[in-house]
């Protein structure tokens, strides 16, 4: 489904600030995998996301979707396969446009945009149904500008926009990190429901150890640009936070250092 083959990426190559962002990363994702990614600061989690989505290009190595190498395909063309929710609730929506208009743009993911009318009544009906499933009343505010919504509401909308066209791959980049605990819990629950229901192949970066263990069927741990641990479903079900931290120390020789890490 999605493969990363020998992917490496340096920041500021050849300068005193040279930094290994990813070193020879090899990953294979099967259709329907829900993978959680944890790691310390600067471990390369965000770089991994950016390389898959096309924001960055790998220095060497290949990114393949369904066997096809796509590392040179620009971000806007990859959106055909990839849905993404960012950490910043402001990043995934257009604030001066209405909920309905935002959904209309998401509906056209990866398709050619022409002079066809945007929000037709058929589409509006569809959006209303999807919005009502979020259970936060957005279906009654479809003509409200998105800038008027709270961070949690915007993130719920971003999640819906990223998923309802059923992308082949869903990237979640610490998408609950900027929310207060109650809202983060809501978004986590919605994520779990949507991913399960639509059987989306998902990659989720998180700082929340407990969340990383509870969600998904596979867990990847990263450190200094390398993938140091890859825990399959069988082992993951009985995993505890303490075990996970122990594993990290054993492999990397350091304590997991992350100023934002939540042990859960």
């Amino acid at each position: 489904m999605l493969d990363l083959v020998n992917v490496s990426k340096l920041f500021n190559p050849g300068t005193p600030d040279e930094k290994i962002a990813l070193m020879n990363a090899n990953l294979r994702f099967k259709t329907g995998d829900f993978v959680t990614v944890i790691g310390s600061n600067g471990a390369g989690k965000s770089t991994l996301m950016n390389i898959i989505s096309g924001v960055m290009k790998p220095d060497i190595g290949e990114v393949r979707i369904e066997g096809k190498a796509i590392q040179h395909v620009p971000e806007y063309e990859r959106s055909r396969w990839i849905g993404r929710v960012f950490q910043d609730p402001m990043a995934g929506t257009a604030p001066r446009m209405t909920i309905e208009e935002n959904l209309t743009m998401a509906y056209k993911r990866g398709k050619t945009r022409g002079f066809g009318w945007g929000a037709t009544s058929a589409k509006r009906q569809l959006f209303r149904e999807h919005l009502s499933r979020l259970g936060i009343g957005l279906e009654n505010r479809m003509n409200a500008k998105v800038g008027l919504l709270s961070g949690g509401e915007r993130q719920a909308l971003s999640l819906l926009m990223a998923t309802f066209t059923k992308p082949a791959i869903l990237l979640l980049d610490e998408h609950t990190a900027a929310l207060d605990p109650a809202r983060a819990e809501l978004i986590t629950r919605l994520t779990d429901e949507i991913v399960r229901e639509m059987k989306l192949t998902t990659l989720m970066v998180t700082h929340n150890m407990e969340q990383a263990i509870r969600l998904g069927n596979r867990l990847i741990m990263m450190d200094k640009g390398r993938i140091i641990l890859d825990i399959p479903e069988e082992k993951k079900t009985n995993l505890t936070v303490a075990q996970l931290l122990g594993e990290f120390e054993q492999i990397s020789g350091n304590k997991l250092s992350d100023d934002r890490v939540i042990l859960g």
């Binding site: 971000e75 959106s79 960012f86």
Partner: peptide, 15 residues
Amino acid sequence: RATGDNARMIRSFGA
């Protein structure tokens, strides 16, 4: 309109 409002967002949706 989205290009002027949130370019990163509309790029992630394929424009």
